[in-house]
């Protein structure tokens, strides 16, 4: 998978950085892989670092929202971290507020919030 560098496990959280050239096919595969990993391990949270993403369109937004839904069913929270300002403005303009997901400025912030839960 070219679009995802790695899935790392840190303090019961899965850290994923998504690269800008991720394709629709790859992101669906990622959703699948993450769902399996959450179910197999004792995972409290999934942290998606999207700071490399120049765009998040309705499809990618939807997949992320679905992933949050899936993790919740498996008792884990999904965080999106590092969203660029331009991406945030564009998503809002598209009407995609993504209320399903939790957000944080950075990986560190997300991990800190997860510890508090």
């Amino acid at each position: 998978m070219a679009g995802v560098t790695s899935i790392n496990l840190v303090e019961h959280a899965l850290l994923v950085s998504i690269q800008d050239d991720i394709t629709d096919t790859e992101i669906l595969e990622l959703q699948d892989r993450l769902s399996n990993k959450i179910a197999q391990n004792r995972i409290d949270g999934v942290i998606l670092d999207i700071s490399a993403l120049e765009i998040v369109d309705t499809f990618v937004g939807r997949v992320i929202a679905q992933l949050a839904g899936i993790s919740k069913l498996l008792a884990a929270e999904t965080y999106v971290v590092g969203m660029r300002p331009t991406v945030a403005v564009t998503l809002v303009e598209l009407g995609m507020y993504l209320p399903e997901i939790r957000t944080a400025l950075s990986l560190t912030h997300a991990l800190a919030q997860l510890r508090e839960i």
Partner: peptide, 8 residues
């Protein structure tokens, strides 16, 4: 909403 998406 945009502020929240950025994590603040």
């Amino acid at each position: 909403a945009a502020v929240r998406l950025m994590g603040a």
